[in-house]
Design a protein around this nucleic acid. Structure first.
Lengths: 157, 157
DNA sequence: CTACTTGCAAATCATTTGCAGATGA
DNA sequence: TCATCTGCAAATGATTTGCAAGTAG
């Protein structure tokens, strides 16, 4: 499909670990074994997760004392600062999702089974921007949650 | 503007305390002095508030032991159950707003001064419903948060 | 080297709960 | 009467922090 030349790496996304490495360096922070393990684990799954679920995935490392609970929390915060994760609160706990390398989207939240269904709408963003303009407000991001009941749960009830 | 006849009290809203009273009765719960004091205080202000801010408004009653901290929390939950308050989490704490007798709206959230600006958009609801329909999802309600910077904070920075 | 990190144990802090006495219907 | 409430003190539980030892650069 290609000849012998390559286009420059325009818009090529770095792997999450590298992107995080850049962030850390830019802040004079260090790339440690723990931080590497955590980013890799975080970006090897594409679901929404909370700190405990992440620690389930890291259970062996935690058992071996290679990573600790506080470090997981500290690193999650750094990933949010780095703009690589987004966080929201659901039922009293922080839930994270990938922001890096993952398209922006909104959520349908089923209050029966707690499932999160993602959807995207360009129009939604236009309306958001129009509303912001009216209030002379500068948008950074938004979050839309639609609560209700999914098809499956309606069938089962 | 009117003659000597009145239209029936169609769509007339009950005062919050009465509406809450109906809810309590329907559940076999009692209308107590504390619950009355709390609903009245909650609906005498139209801002967003958290439990502590509400307790500031109730400070004298709390000092006099007429109302206690746990009862405030318990009653707030009941008001949410009753559909009279909505709740969201902001900065680790639960924030409440009136749902009863207050038009539905969305929020612009200024991350510099933490101000919440309300706006309403009918189109937003249409888009929400369209997205839900596509996923065969039954909507109960939604919540939209636009994070950014308000005009005032942009001026001051 | 030495400043940044980590794991541990302990602290936080909003919210919740057990319980005995108080109270609404 | 008596089931429902309330205030109190204590418990919860996710997340954070102080600190001494470990480690990246």
């Amino acid at each position: 499909m290609s000849g012998s030349f390559t286009l420059g790496p325009v818009h090529v996304k770095l792997p999450p670990a590298e992107r995080f490495g850049q962030f850390l360096e830019s802040r004079g922070k260090r790339i440690t074994r723990q931080r590497r393990l955590i980013v890799d684990t975080v970006f090897s799954h594409h679901d929404h997760f909370d700190a405990d679920e992440l620690m389930d995935h890291l259970q062996e490392l935690i058992a071996q004392r290679k990573v600790s609970r506080p470090t997981v929390y500290r690193t999650l915060s750094e990933l949010v600062e780095a703009g690589m994760l987004r966080t929201m609160t659901l039922g009293g706990r922080s839930v994270y999702e990938h922001e890096y390398g993952y398209p922006s989207h909104d959520h349908l939240y089923c209050q029966m089974c707690n499932k999160l269904i993602e959807f995207h709408s360009a129009e939604l963003e236009q309306i958001r921007d129009a509303a912001a303009r009216e209030h002379d407000f500068e948008v950074i991001s938004h979050r839309m949650f639609v609560t209700g009941t999914c098809a499956e749960c309606r069938r089962n009830r």
